[in-house]
Amino acid sequence: MSPQLKNQLYELSVRLGDDALILGQRLCEWCGHAPSTEIDLTLSNLGLDLIGQARHFLTYAGELEGKGRDEDGLAFERDALDFKNCLLVEQPNGDFAQTIARHFLFSTWQLLFLEQLAQTNDETLRAIARKSIKEISYHASISAQWVIRLGDGTPESHDRMMNGLDWMWRFVDELFLVQEGIEDVCENIGLDLSSIENEWRNKVAATLKEATLDLPADRKGIFGGRVGHHSEHLGPLLSEMQSLPRTYNDANW
């Protein structure tokens, strides 16, 4: 693989690792504060899966980068400009409906994406994808169930679910540009993303229908995560997450 392609493969792994890491970190905020102990357990399950996936993707990214950085080096020593997650996953938790809106929109996309990644010719990414598919199928299904429960629950939960989707909707277009700027490597490993946007729109529309929710109106998409230009929400998240390793940079933990 040429250095340029290898660099793009690093970039792809970082984008996927950062998506999982940042969303996992957001879910950690719920720990001990969820609407019920059962929901607390569900959200920690989702968070644990994502942190696990982040570790795999970032470890691989570190190997591709070849600068001796491991998963922690990448998670804790990069600045916000070097984080490549999509803007959707860094959005604040808000209320439970907003968290569910984010998770539903993201994991529905993530599942379709991983199914394609599992068919590429990059052995490591394929292996991570295959393992993650099992987990993310559950994420997509549990979050869709909650969208339906809240959408078709009480008038209050319906409104809150609608507001949650409304907050997140401007960030969905970015999901479908995950390959932007790294098209060569995507082609090289055989990653075919041509059908996932349609499938995603169909799945989302079907769930919202069952939830008695209107599809949010089209709007101008907001982009920037994949090139390191984030929302205002990422900085504080990173400051907190990275505080120990950055303060004590000679320490092992």
Binding site: C28, E29, S44, D72
Partner: peptide, 26 residues
């Protein structure tokens, strides 16, 4: 313990701590 979950100093420690807190909920 949740107070340190977001500041766990490595991803492995974060995963272990999250799993531990989850055990407690269980």
């Amino acid at each position: 313990e949740g107070n340190w979950l977001r500041r766990a100093p490595s991803l492995k420690r974060k995963a272990i701590l999250l799993a531990k807190i989850q055990d407690e909920a269980g």
